[in-house]
């Protein structure tokens, strides 16, 4: 497989770091080198979360170069648009349609961008845009915390690594009693 760059974005508390951890481990399990990088600390309190994963024969810098991201996985609708510049032309965008209203909108003077504007921004780089209401899927499966796994399932469909490898990594990370629910969430995401 060629070098592959993933970018996971969203808002603190959405399970983005776990998701990107899993993707980095899937890369290793698939026999590749993998690196992952994120920012903790002051920027984390209610802020944007940005986590990079790179796969390759020998990965150098842990963060992909601007304009070279192959897969943008956004856990929040607006955040997909914020990171458009990172995409390589014709990259795959997977976005959860959940909206988390920033305080600059809820109590400040900013506006949440219209769906059409977000769409237009993404289309300036790629037409491969996949939307998923992962929160609704997770709630249907009985646990909103499965959002994470639903999104990973959706991503896995576009990545040439066996679903079994993904599930193996996921099963190593979730408590046994949640395993079935996570399998289901992954499968639902993958077939959506």
């Amino acid at each position: 497989m060629n070098d592959t760059n993933f970018l996971f974005v969203g808002v603190g508390g959405q399970g983005i770091l776990t998701a990107s951890d899993i993707v980095a481990e899937v890369g290793l399990a698939a026999g590749l080198d993998a690196k992952k990088s994120e920012i903790h600390g002051f920027s984390q309190r209610g802020g944007v979360v940005e986590s990079h994963v790179r796969w390759g024969q020998r990965v150098g810098a842990p963060v992909a170069e601007l304009g070279t991201v192959d897969f943008l996985v956004s856990f929040e609708l607006l955040e997909s648009a914020r990171f458009v510049e990172h995409l390589r032309p014709n990259a795959v965008v997977i976005t959860n349609t959940q909206r988390i209203i920033p305080m600059s909108v809820s109590s400040g003077g900013y506006a949440y961008p219209a769906d059409g504007d977000i769409e237009k921004a993404l289309r300036s780089r790629t037409d491969q845009i996949y939307r998923i209401d992962a929160l609704a899927v997770a709630q249907e499966l009985g646990n909103p915390r499965l959002v994470n796994t639903v999104v990973l399932g959706a991503l896995s469909w576009h990545v040439p690594v066996d679903a079994a490898v993904w599930l193996d990594v996921i099963s190593r990370r979730v408590p046994p009693r949640h395993l079935n629910a996570n399998r289901q969430a992954f499968d639902t995401g993958r077939s959506s």
Binding site: V11, F42, S43, Q44, R45, G46, G47, V48, E65, L66, G67, T68, L78, E79, A81, R82, V84, E85, P89, P102, M103, S104, V105, G108, Y110, A111, Y112, P113, D117, I118, K120, A121, R123, S124, R125
Partner: peptide
Amino acid sequence: PLPVAPLTEPVQAPPRIPALC
């Protein structure tokens, strides 16, 4: 230099300023 074309339709993304929990 990587050919990164500037965005034709940049979106005005409202900031997420750190806040007390």
